[in-house]
Design a protein around this nucleic acid. Structure first.
Length: 445
DNA sequence: TCTGGGGTCCTAGGACCC
DNA sequence: TCTGGGGTCCTAGGACCC
């Protein structure tokens, strides 16, 4: 039996732990640039604020309905996430952290009543970390996800499901009839793996509820959609198709590393694009070294805004293969900047840019005898110097703070983050209470 | 005025091989 | 006029997730 545990409105709940004035009020957390709502409290959902809705569209609710908006504070959220995962992990032999706010637990071999255990987990995470959670139990990952959704919804919208399913929902405790009722009352679009496009297509074929979907013909689903959706169907019928990947302690290395931002305002100046791309490449290189990998290709993109119909659209997306995979910031930045210089066009209002590292492999992996340069002693020494230098840079930045040492070209046009024309706005960010000494909350006697 | 920033997996189709 | 058949590998793009 598997469980999915996730934090309710994670980002909002993290903010509330340290700012009790937010409790019971409609609250949203804003994306970078304070552009869109990426988390909503239940009260904000009730005001009609949609996921990813632009802030300017709901801003009037600040005055009319007491809506409170805060800028995203990812440093705080990821630390709170780690604490939550540590607590949840105590209760089952295997845990897979799936995202910042949810993990799967595998209860195989565990004795005891699962709903009762689920309630203990909720109480522990709430008591020790301060985050409210929901828990779903099912025979497969997709069922556990669905049970979690039912548990959360039963709690939030009385009458939607039997109250016994609220907060902690175990499908195994339902008989066939009760399960069919739950499935019939649940929209097909909430199933894990069914997004907007597929649910539209399913509805057009008169498959509207989870029950409709579960009763659909598997071969037809595969033919008209994909093997992926067929797996989803089998999972809902109780046949496991998605394995637990339970590499508990060692995070799986990313196959692609992306750093991108929307600009605070439109960019027309090549120097600004180059500065941004240089900065993104630097940041990506840090992530790359952190997971002890090298990249064999550097991608750069920048584009105009699709939301400004009066702007001429333009979009650049180029990938530069590297002769030899590297994790050296200077080489990665150089490749990214070169591509940006070549592809930049005057006369466009660029709104967003990014750098993607791909063809990622372990840093320990050497090309071996086929790489002629590798046999060149000077080249070997050079490579060693390089990685030693990067190590020093990383250590210094870890000790003295981000950007204590950085690549020269990322400061071409200006000297501080505050004056960089492309820098994102974050006017409402809370203190990083748990990860910065100077921002630690102070208790007054 | 103002519209997120990460990721994953699968598939179709082209390049290329014999 | 008629122009193979079977395979692999790679990439771009589309779907999804949070």
């Amino acid at each position: 039996m598997l469980a999915l545990i996730d934090a309710n409105n994670m980002y909002v709940s993290c903010e509330r732990v340290f700012a009790p004035r937010l409790v019971g009020r409609p609250v949203v957390v804003l994306s970078s640039n304070d552009g869109a709502c990426i988390a909503r409290s239940n009260e904000a959902k009730e005001l009609g604020v949609k996921m990813a809705q632009p802030w300017f569209q709901v801003r009037h609710l600040e005055r009319t309905a007491g809506l409170i908006a805060v800028s995203a504070n990812f440093e705080l959220y990821s630390d709170m996430s780690a604490r939550m995962m540590a607590v949840a992990g105590r209760y089952a032999p295997r845990q897979q952290v799936y995202s910042i706010d949810e993990c799967f637990l595998d209860f195989e071999g565990v004795r005891g009543e699962l709903v009762a255990i689920g309630r203990q987990i909720r109480a522990a995470v709430l008591g020790e970390v301060g985050l409210p959670t929901s828990i779903g139990f099912g025979a497969t990952k997709t069922l556990a996800k669905l049970a979690n959704h039912v548990g959360k919804t039963a709690d939030r919208k009385p009458g939607s499901y039997p109250t016994t399913l609220a907060q902690v929902c175990n499908f195994a405790n339902l008989d066939a009839r009760e399960l069919a009722d739950v499935f019939a009352a649940t929209d097909v679009g909430v199933i894990w793996g069914i997004g907007r496009k597929i649910s539209e297509k399913l509805r057009a074929a008169d498959v509207r509820s989870v029950l409709d979907f579960v009763r659909a013909d598997a071969a037809t689903i595969r033919g008209q959609f994909s093997v992926v959706l067929e797996k989803t169907l089998m999972e809902l019928r109780g046949t496991s198709c998605l394995e637990m990947s339970d590499i508990d302690d060692v995070p799986i290395a990313k196959q692609q590393i992306l750093v991108s931002r929307s600009f605070g305002k439109a960019i027309t100046d090549p120097a600004a694009i180059i500065e941004a791309v240089s900065e993104f490449a630097s940041r990506a290189a840090e992530k790359l070294r952190h997971q002890q990998s090298t990249a064999g290709a550097v991608g750069v993109f920048f584009m105009t805004s699709p939301f400004r119909p009066n702007d001429r659209p333009h979009s650049v997306n180029v990938t530069t293969p590297l002769v030899r995979p590297t994790a050296d910031s200077r080489l990665l930045v150089q490749a990214a900047v070169n591509a940006a210089e070549v592809e930049f066009r005057h006369g466009f209002n660029y709104a967003k840019a990014g750098v993607i590292l791909s063809d990622i492999r372990p840093a320990s992996h050497h090309q071996g005898e086929l790489d002629l340069f590798a046999n060149d002693e000077r080249a070997k020494t050079h490579a060693k110097d390089r990685s030693a230098l990067m190590e020093v840079v990383d250590v210094l930045n870890c000790r003295f703070g981000r950007d204590s040492v950085r690549i020269g070209s990322s400061t071409l046009a200006s000297h501080s983050a505050e004056v960089r024309s492309w820098a994102t706005r974050q006017e409402r960010r809370s203190p990083r209470y748990t990860t910065r000494w100077v921002e630690m909350p102070v208790v007054k006697a």
